[in-house]
Write a protein that binds this DNA or RNA. Structure first.
Lengths: 225, 225
DNA sequence: TTAACAAACGTGATTTTGTCACAGAACTTC
DNA sequence: GAAGTTCTGTGACAAAATCACGTTTGTTAA
């Protein structure tokens, strides 16, 4: 959680801050608000109006694709210090696809209003550049997921997802549902359940409602390789 | 095919050209060469050294992912006038994934050497910006493929691919192999063959070696919807 | 403190898609 | 026209997704 003033936070997280004119700094600051999101709440959906640039100051946000039939596939997650450009995608005319963004935990962020950011971005190439570089970062994230889904067997993907959770939990006890893992891996809940059962048979994990305990991290790493 | 001088071609295809200094223009021009590629030849592979910025002046280039086992999935194609940034991905530090690029037909392009482009891009934010905007364009292309592969049934994807070919052929007679369609749809050759057989049974297409004739474009569109 | 409810999970049956192995057909080249 | 290459067809199988339930587990509220 970041609790200091708006200006200090903006300066910390926006690398171009010191290259802005005083007027630009003021304009940004005056159009930035602090926002709180409850776990599971929606931040951005498809091509609805653009919330603006999201600067994560606490919690986890999750960017995902949503199919017409309601299937979700997670693209990447954002943590404290990450700046979310797709919540301001309306600013970048090159971005023509739709993503959804939710708060995955209770979370908070600074929001730079889209029009204010757009105005500065239109005049200041350094700022515009920052935005496009963020997009390129996400491009790489998405390509990573895509390769995983296209080329890796499901056992491997699930093992990888479990290890990711293990890291962000900082513990061998993971608290998440099978449904959640299905979204992370671009698969279906039943498929996750079945594979987890196989992992149990192999002595790799232990299951209980809403919790997965890793018993053999080595085997898991080997699987995910 | 573009046959005029280097400088004219650069000016036509690089929107930032007129904003360069004389020295920058000269440097770019002197580090640009015209290249010919035979159908099927490789232009860029993974993280091998960067060829540089590719400006397509004729033919078709194809950007694809390649798995360890050799499976290929086409991401997008480039035509006359398109500028390829991923062949110069080494310049953009944000781009961390690997793609491959082939000439899909006999093709030709101008190549701006990577170091020359990088030098100018490092000093001139407008040029750097241009590069990142190109990347964002491709990001959108890739997201489009990803949604197709993740959310659409194979019949639909194949119908879409056939319609794409129908357009670029400008005719109901498509000249391509099942293997090619498999790469376009992120699937396998046998799967394409089988689905095409179903299309034949439904009176949608007619098959012969290396050629597919669309008999019922309406049904195909309905399938692809 | 249960009854009622909702969320999470288990599992068989089915379909779709991808993989493997091989065979035959259709063009090319010499 | 013999040999080789490329392209296609097909059966058997495996992996994964989907469908249709049923069961378990925890929460809420009468």
């Amino acid at each position: 959680m970041v609790t200091d003033g708006l200006q200090e936070t903006l300066q910390r997280y926006l690398p171009f801050w010191d290259k802005l004119s005083k007027a630009e700094q003021e304009s940004l600051r005056d159009n930035t608000t602090r926002a709180q999101y409850a776990k599971g709440s929606n931040v951005h959906r498809g091509h609805s109006e653009c919330v603006g640039l999201l600067i994560v100051t606490g919690g986890i946000f999750c960017t995902y694709l949503l199919s017409d039939e309601g299937r979700e596939v997670t693209l990447y997650r954002m943590y404290e210090g990450d700046v979310c450009i797709l919540s301001a995608a309306c600013i970048l005319r090159q971005i023509t696809f739709e993503v959804h963004i939710d708060a995955q935990t209770d979370a908070e962020a600074l929001i730079v209003s889209a029009p204010a950011f757009e105005a500065i971005s239109a005049k200041n190439p350094i700022v515009e550049n920052f935005a496009y570089k963020l997009a390129a970062d996400r491009f790489s994230d998405v390509m990573w997921s895509m390769q995983q889904i296209l080329f890796m067997g499901f056992d491997r993907r699930l093992a990888g997802a479990l290890l990711d959770e293990r890291i962000s939990a900082g513990s061998l006890e993971i608290h998440c549902t099978h449904e959640y893992l299905a979204r992370q891996t671009g698969s279906a809940r039943e498929v996750v359940s079945r594979m987890l059962k196989r992992f149990v048979e192999d002595g790799i994990v232990e299951l209980s409602r809403g919790r997965i305990t890793i018993l053999d991290e080595g085997k898991l790493r080997e699987l995910a390789r």
